[in-house]
């Protein structure tokens, strides 16, 4: 069991939008979908480092703002003909608060 970190209130993120959390490993983007699902993936696009948190969110996917690669928020995989992926992080909502699983952040730190 890891100690989930309370990040913010769900309402701090607009529906179909994202905000970033600064971490030692760079920014992690927290997404909120149109129906209040929350996902966390690396903010940095593997193509040319576009900030994914600034992309347009549709369904459970985001389109990178720089060159329109589309990433599945659930898996972090690029969709369509583009090849690449970003790391995903555990995140959940409890009583309107967003909780981030730090396991991945710390394990990467140790590794």
């Amino acid at each position: 069991m890891s100690n989930w970190i309370d990040i913010a209130s769900l309402d701090d993120i607009p529906k179909r939008g994202a905000r970033v959390v600064k971490t030692h490993l760079g920014c992690v983007a927290i997404f909120r979908t149109h129906d209040d699902q929350v996902y966390a993936i690396d903010d940095t696009c593997p193509h040319k480092k576009g900030p994914l948190s600034e992309g347009i969110v549709h369904g459970t996917a985001v389109t990178c703002p720089l060159h329109n690669w589309v990433f599945d928020l659930k898996t972090g995989m690029a969709q369509g003909s583009d090849v690449g992926s970003v790391a995903t992080y555990g995140v959940r909502v409890e009583d309107g608060r967003i909780l981030l699983d730090p396991a991945r952040l710390t394990s990467k730190l140790v590794a």
């Binding site: 970190i5 990040i7 913010a8 701090d12 993120i13 905000r19 970033v20 959390v21 600064k22 971490t23 030692h24 920014c27 927290i30 981030l100 730090p102 952040l105 710390t106 730190l109």
Partner: peptide, 9 residues
């Protein structure tokens, strides 16, 4: 950013 975990981590 909504949160800064650089310290916590």
């Amino acid at each position: 950013p909504i949160a800064d975990l650089t310290l916590e981590a």
